[in-house]
Design a binder for these strands. Structure first.
Lengths: 191, 191, 191, 191
DNA sequence: CATGAATGAGAGTTCATTCAT
DNA sequence: CATGAATGAACTCTCATTCAT
């Protein structure tokens, strides 16, 4: 009845991305070979190379799914005054970015060592640096710095750790965020 | 003339371990080849095989440097009553184990994806599970669980993140621990 | 409006040939991929296949730019009496064929090993054989044979070697030819 | 009887070199795959990599068989006064270097295009440049330059071309050299 | 005329591992 | 204790080529 008549145009690129994501999550970036990706997809290795220039390029495409949004968030943050309120807002928004992209964050997290040699690793590190600077702005004390890190760890790793635990995802996210804000709050309000 | 008569026993084994640790930290477990380790050490690959059965075995030896102590900690915890005090004590002791073994923890952390296929990964996961159970004992609420995770993240990742930041290590450790205890405290005391 | 009405016939075919020639000279036949040719031309690889059946076919088209003329020269030579004058004339005419087609000769020269497997290589070898026979006709002595070879080397490689040296091309060509004729002359006259 | 008791020590490196030489001559450098070399030798590809770092490295080892001697020759030449006699001597000695190493020179000659990208190509070009400078020293006229080139072509390509022609090799070499000296002689004596 | 998508074959290279000495 | 030599399996990547549209 006209449903997807011949949408074949080229969803292949996206299918590669999806399959690669699954395998990278399950077996790690290094341990996943292009042969595996191709086989699981029912195409040849060469087909992957038609759509992506290198293996790293596939990872990059996946990584960019979250890289872009997070960069926007940081840009926004750098345009705001460095008030406690801004910092709280940053945490909230970061938590939202995490939602729905957990597998991507997990790959970046668990393959950190492999990323180091790749330029993706550099970009990732840059983001962390900029985020750190943002949060520390205006208060360089050790206690404040620890609180910031702790709050960010809570949001970031909380999302990853609680992902495969039963319960309503949104409820878990809000609980996590609440604790993070509490940790941060003391420092930010403490001024 | 009496000091360390023949204590050489197996100098090489330890030198391999140290070199491997350095390289695993710098380039990652997968990306570090036995050739590199051997070259940096000035021996042949075959020599490594005299001291270790496989590459994984080298990693295992490194991992065991922290595995043992942490297992002891967990054993101790499971023998205690599940009071808030016990939980605080666990955090303190875990923080102490971290001190001085940061590179090893870093390897385990950053090569997680690679470890998954190895049995080291299994043991690691088991430790996390047991630790979780310990902390949650007596209070299964979502808020408490989040607080526990958050406190542990703070101690664990705080140690890794603050390692390459200037400042007195012990001071940083105590500040981190203080925040972690604060996060935990509310939940533990909330009973 | 009347000039070159539809003379476009096959502009692309020639552009492919020219681009391929440039790349074959610069990077060698084997090392030049169809992708490179296509990219430099702003078309797709598949487009090349519309105009040429295979990669070898492109090379053949280029090679034929000189193959035809040289074959004519040989045909002419075989129809002449084997006098010294004929041999001198052959050298002169070969020198003229070289002029303006240096890049093509250079490709054939520098990619000899690659050509061996191709049928172009066979044809090339055949030409050399026929030319040799022509020059040796009537005098099979070792000295004469060496002189012939030497004269031909002088004309052939002289054109290639002096190409990227400053100076008036025609002047260089004539100087080269003079030496070649001198070398040949003794033998031819020696009869 | 004591013949070659267990000379196994390691002639493999040399056997690889010999086999590679044969195949490079027969099929060209690019068209010869490491698989072929290994198969013909009855070892694995990996064994080749135990003895040589790259494919290029095998070629380099082969090329160095003539590279060293020729470099010595050039060094010698540069230490002499630029007299006609020196130039004649250079030709004679070059001719002697060629004798017995024809296959190596042939590889370098016929795979020129492939060598260009390799650093072997650079070294080769450098040798040619230095040799050219040597011969031209003291006389920069076009005629002299052409004569020098012609003489060198005669010796160099003569050796390659006459190799697979019947007749006593040494006799052929001397005949070739005689012609080369004659060509050169006029220029050198002409002063 | 030309493209987008894909393929099969094979390349060079690296790795962890083994074993006789 | 340690080495030199070798292997088998796998890897990422490139190439010339095809074909439906």
């Amino acid at each position: 009845m006209g449903s997807t008549p011949h949408t074949r145009r080229s969803d292949t690129r996206e299918r590669i991305q999806r399959t690669a994501l699954d395998l990278f999550v399950a077996r790690g970036y290094e341990k996943t070979s292009l042969r595996e990706i191709a086989e699981q997809l029912g195409v040849t290795k060469a087909a992957l190379y038609y759509h992506f220039k290198t293996k790293e390029d596939i990872l990059r495409a996946i990584s960019d799914q979250v890289g872009g949004p997070v960069d926007e968030l940081i840009d926004w943050g750098e345009a705001q005054p460095p008030t406690p309120e801004t910092k709280r807002e940053l945490l909230c928004r970061y938590s939202e970015k995490l939602r729905g992209a957990v597998p991507v964050f997990r790959i970046l997290q668990e393959n950190q060592a492999s990323l180091r040699a790749l330029d993706i690793g550099g970009r990732l590190r840059e983001r962390v640096t900029r985020l750190s600077r943002l949060m520390r702005a205006g208060d360089e004390g050790l206690d404040a710095q620890v609180r910031f890190s702790s709050a960010l760890f809570t949001v970031h790793f909380g999302a990853l750790a609680l992902d495969d635990v039963m319960g309503d995802p949104e409820e878990k996210r809000l609980a996590t965020l609440a604790v993070a804000l509490e940790v941060l709050g003391t420092a930010a309000a403490g001024r």
